[in-house]
Amino acid sequence: MGDVRDLSSAPSARRSGWRPVDDELTLRAERHAPRLARHWVMRAIAAEGVVGSNNQVIELLTGELVSNAVVHGPADGEVLVGLRVDRRTVRVSVRDTGQGRPRVRHPEPTAPSGRGLALVEALSSAWGTATHADGGKTVWFDVELDD
């Protein structure tokens, strides 16, 4: 007879009694906001059993979107980070009051910045933007979870 494994720690088992997560975090548009957002998202998704490479990709992409909001939004503004976790997908959204429209760039290899949305495009399952009538925008990404 083979070894008995505790399957209650497997991500799919942890999600079996699970309820959707829908939460928000408001941060000042300051230099440390990306780190705070990454840690908040990582703790929340780990509590839902999202681990391994999915967790790392979500951490990286969250930091990229919040960094963009801090750099391109108003210096005295706020950044609203949204998190939704369901059985199959994690969605992170980042809203700021900046007026610019995000676009994917492909900078020269020696350029110091400009790769954030290219990473989001390459590593997420889907991503997009929405502009708001009261000004500002939301940039979001989805990561499909492994079974």
Rank of each mutant, 00 (worst) to 15 (best):
V21L: 15
G116W: 01
T110C: 03
P34W: 00
R19T: 12
V70S: 01
G2H: 05
N54C: 13
R91E: 13
E30V: 05
A130C: 08
R43H: 15
V51Y: 10
T62Y: 05
V143W: 02
E108A: 14
R5E: 08
V104A: 05
G77A: 07
Q99G: 10
M1P: 10
G17T: 07
G100E: 05
T110D: 15
R95M: 12
V79I: 14
H132M: 05
D3L: 14
P74V: 10
I58N: 04
N54L: 08
S93F: 14
S8P: 01
T129N: 12
P112G: 11
D6S: 11
W140N: 01
S113V: 02
S113D: 13
G17F: 07
G135K: 12
A75M: 11
A29I: 08
V79F: 12
V139D: 04
V79G: 07
D96N: 12
D22G: 07
T129Y: 15
G128R: 00
A130G: 06
K137N: 02
D3I: 10
G98T: 06
V57P: 05
S16R: 15
A133L: 09
S12A: 11
E59F: 14
L83W: 06
R43G: 10
G98D: 01
H132Q: 08
E59M: 10
A10M: 14
G63Y: 01
G17E: 04
S53L: 09
D147H: 15
V85S: 04
V79Y: 01
V94I: 06
A111V: 09
G52W: 09
T89P: 06
A111Q: 04
D6L: 12
S124R: 03
S12R: 11
G98V: 09
P11E: 07
R19G: 07
P11D: 06
G128M: 09
L123D: 01
E78W: 04
R88M: 08
D96G: 00
D23F: 13
G17Y: 00
M1W: 02
G63Q: 06
T129C: 14
D6A: 14
R15Y: 11
S8W: 05
A37I: 00
D142S: 11
R91G: 05
S93V: 08
H106C: 00
R91N: 06
G63C: 04
A75D: 09
S16M: 09
P34Q: 03
P112A: 01
P102H: 07
V139E: 04
S9V: 15
G135V: 14
L145R: 04
R103L: 14
N55A: 15
V143M: 04
T131P: 08
V71Y: 01
G135L: 03
P107Q: 03
R115Q: 04
A46Y: 07
N55C: 11
I58T: 08
V21G: 07
K137V: 07
D96Y: 02
E144L: 11
R87C: 11
P107L: 06
R105K: 03
L60H: 15
V85N: 02
S93L: 11
H72Y: 05
T138F: 07
P102T: 08
E59L: 03
G82N: 09
E144M: 14
D6K: 12
L117Q: 00
L61Q: 05
R105I: 09
A33Q: 09
H39D: 13
T26H: 11
M1A: 13
L61R: 02
S16V: 06
V92A: 00
D96T: 12
V81I: 13
